[in-house]
Design a protein around this nucleic acid. Sequence first.
DNA 1: TAGTGGTCTAGACCACCGG
DNA 2: CGGTGGTCTAGACCACTAA
Lengths: 239, 239
Amino acid sequence: MLKYESVADDIREKIVGGTYAPNDQLPTTPELCDEYQVSKITVKKAMDELVAQGLIARRRGSGTYVKRTTVAEAKSPAGWDMSSQMAGFCAEHQGHEVTSVVHDFSVVRPEAGVAEMLGMDSDEFAYHIVRTRLVDGVPHVVEYTYMPIKLVPDLRERNVETSIYGYLEGELGLKIGSAHRVIKAVLPTDDEATWLGVDPSQPLLEVKQVGFLDDGVPFEWSVARHANDYEFCSISTHN
Amino acid sequence: MLKYESVADDIREKIVGGTYAPNDQLPTTPELCDEYQVSKITVKKAMDELVAQGLIARRRGSGTYVKRTTVAEAKSPAGWDMSSQMAGFCAEHQGHEVTSVVHDFSVVRPEAGVAEMLGMDSDEFAYHIVRTRLVDGVPHVVEYTYMPIKLVPDLRERNVETSIYGYLEGELGLKIGSAHRVIKAVLPTDDEATWLGVDPSQPLLEVKQVGFLDDGVPFEWSVARHANDYEFCSISTHN
DNA sequence: TAGTGGTCTAGACCACCGG
DNA sequence: CGGTGGTCTAGACCACTAA
């Protein structure tokens, strides 16, 4: 384990455990260097993590302070954890049974807008997958996915029924690097209302996403329409 | 200007300008050190920025690559710019006339849940502001805001009608540090439909937010309900 | 003015990828 | 194996805050 990670983990535990209370000033950088026997820059990198996770705030010339956050969110439930946001629907619901109903699984030439987002030529093929995803048997979200066949030459029905991300990372050895998302509120189509078992007047949260591998190549364009009061969490930081 | 910022800016321009094309490998770290006459760590910090902005991807042992993003988003329009997401509604619509219709402006004891999020005692007072915000005369969003009076002792109607953030940062010298958000889809109330001039069946994007000052003290609890197909943008990165 | 965090450096060492 | 990016260090210097 990396030094800055173990320092960050230790301080995070002391924050959620109450050793450092909300609004407290943390020990200064030299003190932390002494406590953990690491250099100034390593302490700073650990702090950078905690700032990104929304636990602390720093003021030059003054000190580092524990943010007055609610305990619930400090313990970083699924929604606030960036890495589970990246790892796909299954990872967000670990400990529960995730299944899928596949409405369409075909190979098509995607429309121009999608092809451009995926860096595809106009005559290239892509998988087209439409599925409803269920957690413990309850429908949660309808997903529409395009994925270039050149990146994933042998996708099968059984992969689509379970976890596509699991197949990509597990069997193909691909590594998912990042995702760009656009979020808006929509009404369900008639099909979606049926698949999700919701009233056609109940709004859905639409998350449109382009997924990238760790070498920067886009591998997925998808639209997920979430029911059941799904909430998307986000933390922004100045600088 | 800081060195790592100017390096990042220069490389960003070369990416959006086409000098470095999508899928290209960027020069290696030693080459960039030589080109910009800076150290390895400074180059890395510049790259960290570009990774966070979704422009490049790095692979240890292989190299650094320009992501295959659409040009539109590489130029980072308002929605994709984190810093404008932080700076409030006015900053998001620079160059346009932002006005407000104030429906309520009072001082109250907020309910327990809000008070806890703001780190307030149960007998403390807070401003309560309800307003519709318009861009060039067109209603865009309804905002419900609570703000402890101890942090902002003299908020007036004229501040609420224009920009609260402008008042906090300009006249009070407070610095806004971060925000924690929870996003979901909702239907408008009757009042909201009237204020926004939309049909009561048109869904809104609700952004619930706690805003923090740069010393980690929460200064604002707010719910913004956006109409007009408002889109929220977000970039996630592995590690 | 003393003390805070932020930037930057040169250089050592490590983990990983590809030929 | 050579080359990539990642981590870590000790130490210099800077910008800012608070008393």
